[in-house]
Amino acid sequence: MTAPSLDDFLALSVDLTAFPETDLRGTGLAGKYLAKVRAACGDAVVTALFAAHQAARAEAAGDPAGFDRALRHRVFSDDCRGPVARNVIKLWYAGTWYALPPEWTDEFGARPAAETSTVTAASYQEGLLWPAIGANPPGAKAPGYGSWAEPPRIDDRYLKGERR
């Protein structure tokens, strides 16, 4: 079996997080996150997750609604892949790997790396939740003295036509 590739992990992560690949790579943590998922779940599970994602893409053939359905069907409602995919989302947004539920570890195996942990010291400040809410991570990525008096700089794509 070939090792799960970073490109496949990024393709999955783009769809799970709704952040473009440039931003995901821009955290500098994509490689470390993939390593964490592999260590916590094992390569067989990770490979199956990537394959399910690719199958969902193929099935939808470019139709966004169809892709949403296929992703829910093939990934999120699957007992094995669903919890892992949700964990990947939390990993990108919060920078923390959360322990998988006991039902998952009972059925698919417990690994020491599956415990709740912060991946690196940088993962808190690189969490996607901060750009998503237009704020800096408290205590890191200083935004400049007095900038807190300004409204959050929320990305246009989240405004859905609303004005700031």
Partner: peptide
Amino acid sequence: IWYMFRLRDGFNRLMRNP
């Protein structure tokens, strides 16, 4: 100066991309 901090984030994002 706020701009400079945002440019910092722009620098970091680009430099971590192959």
